[in-house]
Design a binder for these strands. Sequence first.
RNA 1: UGGGGAGUCGCCAAGCGGCAAGGCUCCGGACUUUGGAUCCGGCAUUCGUAGGUUCGAAUCCUACCUCCCCAGCCA
Length: 572
Amino acid sequence: MTSADLDPKAAASEGTVPEAPRRHFIQEIIDEHNRSGRFGGRVHTRFPPEPNGYLHIGHAKSICLNFGLAEEYGGKCNLRFDDTNPVKEEQEYIDSIITDVRWMGFQWAGIYYASDYFEQIYQWSVQLIKAGKAYVDHLTADEIREHRGTLTKPGKDSPYRNRTVEENHDLFERMKAGEFKEGECVLRAKIDMASPNINLRDPVLYRILHATHHRTGDKWCIYPMYDWAHGQSDSIEGITHSICTLEFEDHKPLYNWFIESLGIYQPVQIEFARLNLNHTVLSKRKLIRLVQEKHVRGWDDPRMPTLSGLRRRGYTAEAIRNFVEMVGIAKSNSIAEMAMLEYCVRQDLNKRAARVMAVVKPLKVVLTNYPEGQTEMLNAVNNPEDPAAGSREVPFSKVLYIEQDDFMENPPSKFYRLSPGREVRLRYGYFIKCEEVVKDAAGNVVELRCTYDASTKGGEAPDGRKVKATIHWVSAAQALDAEVRLYNHLFTKPFPGDDEGSDFVNDISPASLEVVTGCKVEPSLANAQAGTGYQFERLGYFAVDPDTQGSTLVFNRTVTLRDDWAKQQKSK
RNA sequence: UGGGGAGUCGCCAAGCGGCAAGGCUCCGGACUUUGGAUCCGGCAUUCGUAGGUUCGAAUCCUACCUCCCCAGCCA
């Protein structure tokens, strides 16, 4: 027993007493509700995406928050599609969202659709009309805008604002029956055109859209606005904590007005700051442009910050969850650094990815003193971080490939890889020494002629001599060909489009994708399955792309390994 | 110049009147058959600014400054 066992303070200072996990403000609010019995101990959240695009890393924060809170408090979390705008929404998006939420590792209490509540919302509209709290307005969209006033000037009442209940009801029924064209009229709440909160200046409740809805078909030609559907959907589902982003903070008085006017169950709305990430874009409008204008291959292009893109690139759900945890939940607008996300994948993949040797840009090496035609199998560890991963055999022979970057004819002092006359270790193999450099007519190094030291098999020299570097390699005869896609930040600037008047697409990095063919990988990769992530020793983490067919292996670089040497070079 | 939010290290972020957590980045160093991993150490005498209250303030009060959101028949 040590003094730390006796003295709790000493123990704490040695880190032996784990600190309670930091709780964020939303957890504190829920704790308070549980103490006061506000919801009888219930915690029921929901993740409410609009199916008009693919989910991205920003959504992951909301997913982790909502589903995470439900798990933590033994509650429930619904997956609900806010599908109130048929012209922008599609089944493809619904499918992708379901796939992505599941991939993130969460289980919903149920899948719901705002469109399932259209009938109820319609009836509530009638209730509002009958209470004299809603009216049909025949002003045009432009006129409504003009009447709304400005941030500093109050709005003006619409001339249609004082229609009778009967007239409003009749008009609304005719809107529903399809007697009007799109834009001809709308249903508006009758609140206060002079409110300093613009959301309360008689917001539009229903608009006419002669569009086919992906779920309700042609049943409706009037569709509720988000504001008029969202809070009521939460109410219907018995949501306790309606968590949303900051911009909805001043919609809250409106939601409360609806709930109170209707006299229905009221959830509590809590706002938090959405996630922002540098060197990418996270707005749906911009992401959809990248796809439609073909700046990327699609929603799941590995350069995209979408969950499907990150997944294809080789990110794991756990890495993303850790990242979200690391970023935290707060109310101040912030922009996290991509470096933090990259740290999280490396941390996760370091534990789980099998190590393998692959040469992306091959340089031929001939071992002049190695027996012609001989092949031997060398034992290689699959994952030094995980003994259970075991080991494998890799073939070694007279002709090998090493990485072009691992050789320099005239190396600077800090370069300690291969160069003329210098000796390095081939990982799990032998020490080799560069004796001769072969060049083509243009002066490019095309081959190295080296000698190997048979006594150094496995990587240790019996005479105790050391080498400064260990490099990876692949035996030429058994090597598999591969295509490797190297990704870098999609945008050169940390804040794309930040320059005044500059379109963010102008900041797309020409180096965001480099496709390298003719790469050589070790034969153990022969049956690598799409989606599997590997560490290419000394290079980074790579995931097998679904484009892989037959014998053509295609890899996506998820992220490089941390590289002090590269960093040194860069800072020069 | 209305209303609603936010300002703590380069980036996130704790702190809730008792004397600035942690993580990422960065910089040193140890170790190393991945220049990986790991491990040590450094990195805010100061909390947007200025006053005030208090024995004591990032935390309370006052004023000011800066940033973000709102004028869709988008969500």
